[in-house]
Simulated scan of single mutants.
Amino acid sequence: MKIDILGVQAFVAIADHGSFNKAADVLHVTQTAVTQRLRNLEIFLGVTLLERTTRSIALTRTGQDFLPQARRLLQELSAALTEIHETGKAQRGDVSIACIPTAGVRYLPQVIRDYSALFPDNRIKILDHASVGVAEAVLRREAEFGINLAGPNHPELTATPLLQDQFVLVCRDDHALARRKSVTWAQLQSHPLIFAGQASGNRALLDGYLGSESLHGGQGDQGGQAGLSLQIHYEVQRNSTALGLVEAGIAAAIVPNLAMQKGTYPRLRVIKLQGPVISRTLVLVARKAARLSPAAQILYDMIKNSRVVK
């Protein structure tokens, strides 16, 4: 149903000031405009709100019943518009962001801490998803923007590079490689490994560098490392699961460096991987046609300005 706000304004102004002429002055329009607005409202409602003669104006019974409701409607509308205006000026409001889990472990918390210090009343909803889920959450408007892995981009999304995150070997302090500062992929061939599962965006990236055959105990394909054959004994979808298995002494794991939160696992060691060095790029994604809320725009800009791409 269409709400005739102009007609309601005209009706209340006439009732409050007792004449069409004074109502026109208050609304800064002509008397003819006030008369037409009231007429349109009465036609829309199918009732007569005012009885008017050449000398007086009186509310009908229906008009008397409607007047307090009309005043309340205008007051609530005014309050709502004022709140939106002030919220925009003050950059207040709720923010919803989607991100891959590793971004929520080490990268995002630093920015959230700074943002919360500036806007302590703003509430932030963080949706941690796999890379496919991040894109879907932004496209479905469940999140205003997100932090995702770089890759084939949806035509409705923009992607701004944030940082490079190298893959590392994580093992327990009693592992045979624990004292090494760096190892090559070839030196891992004799060790059981925990790896990202097929549904993980990390797995697709590693497959591209090393060759899918290398990760299935084969001899490497033309796009990967010739002769490389890794022992993938365990596959997981979450890096946190991989780290838990390493902590239990099950095997060593290949994870992004951001997955390791300092001090969380005292017995775990992080070892650089070389030959080749493999990194993934984290990107800030948003809908191309999106106009972020003021509160979200500030957080978006803070994340964007904090990026470190090497």
Rank of each mutant, 00 (worst) to 15 (best):
G7I: 02
G18E: 00
F20C: 04
N21Y: 00
A23Y: 00
A23L: 02
V29E: 04
V34C: 06
Q36F: 01
L41I: 05
I57D: 02
A58G: 03
T62S: 09
T62L: 05
G63L: 07
Q64E: 15
R71G: 05
L74Y: 08
Q91V: 01
Q91A: 14
I100M: 13
T102M: 13
A103F: 07
Q110N: 11
D114M: 14
Y115F: 14
P120F: 03
P120E: 09
N122Y: 06
I124W: 09
G133C: 11
A137Y: 00
V138D: 06
R140L: 13
G146A: 15
L149W: 07
G151H: 08
N153Y: 02
H154Q: 10
A159W: 00
T160N: 14
Q166V: 07
F167W: 01
D174A: 14
R180M: 13
T184A: 12
W185Q: 05
L188W: 06
S190I: 03
S190H: 12
P192M: 04
Q198P: 01
A199E: 13
N202H: 11
N202M: 11
R203P: 02
L206R: 04
L206F: 02
L210I: 03
L215S: 06
G220I: 03
Q222W: 01
Q222A: 11
Q222I: 03
Q225N: 03
A226M: 07
G227R: 14
L228D: 05
L230D: 10
E235Q: 15
V236A: 02
Q237W: 00
R238A: 15
S240G: 10
E247P: 01
E247Q: 15
A248M: 10
A251R: 05
R267P: 00
R269M: 10
I271A: 07
K272T: 09
L273D: 03
I278L: 03
S279Q: 11
R280N: 07
L284F: 03
R287T: 01
K288V: 04
P294I: 13
Q297C: 09
I298C: 15
M302Y: 07
I303G: 09
